[in-house]
């Protein structure tokens, strides 16, 4: 019973904060509400008994990536008074891509059936040992490929930073 109430509370918070990210005029408030959203999602992870995922989510997303985002927004000093005028073409493209994403989501929700969904019997999905075992046995290839992706991102970042030295 408590967990149901908690679930609805967390869900409501995450949805509201996510909406606030989109509709807020000030970029700082957007970033801050995105952080709140990440925390509520971490709360969902904890309710799924996946503490490891939750804390990694907080460390990586809320603790590192969002700090960088906040950093950028603060340095650029994007106040609502000086919000950049957006071109009509940009708006059009944004609507188009957003519509595509929406279409995909609608299609996937429509095609899936929740009637015969069964929760996995194994509940320790979020423990460090189990995640390690899964990553290094069943999902080794995707894991390594994603690390290659990170390496390439790192190299490109270094290249961008070192551009002037030829």
């Amino acid at each position: 019973m408590e967990s149901t109430i908690l679930f609805y509370l967390l869900s409501a918070m995450s949805v509201i904060s996510a909406l606030f990210v989109v509709f807020s005029r000030s970029p700082i408030y957007s970033v801050l509400s995105l952080i709140v959203c990440f925390f509520t999602i971490a709360g969902h992870y904890i309710m799924l008994n996946a503490q490891f995922l939750a804390i990694i989510h907080i460390i990586v997303y809320a603790g590192a990536i969002m700090v960088l985002m906040l950093f950028t927004v603060m340095l650029l000093n994007l106040n609502q008074e000086v919000s950049v005028h957006k071109f009509n073409l940009t708006k059009l493209m944004a609507v188009f891509t957003g519509g595509l994403l929406f279409l995909v989501i609608v299609a996937s929700v429509k095609s899936s059936t929740l009637a015969n969904y069964q929760a996995p019997a194994y509940l320790n999905i979020g423990n460090a040992e189990d995640i390690g075992m899964k990553l290094f046995t069943d999902y080794l290839l995707p894991f390594e490929i994603s690390s290659v992706l990170f390496v390439s991102a790192m190299i490109s970042a270094v290249l961008l930073a070192k551009k002037e030295i030829k």
Partner: peptide, 25 residues
Amino acid sequence: DINIGVLYIMGVLSVGVYGIMIGGW
């Protein structure tokens, strides 16, 4: 006694920056 105690400390530490950042900004 959570089984991710060390990570919890790291996580809380990394969130602590927000206090400074928000206050400073």
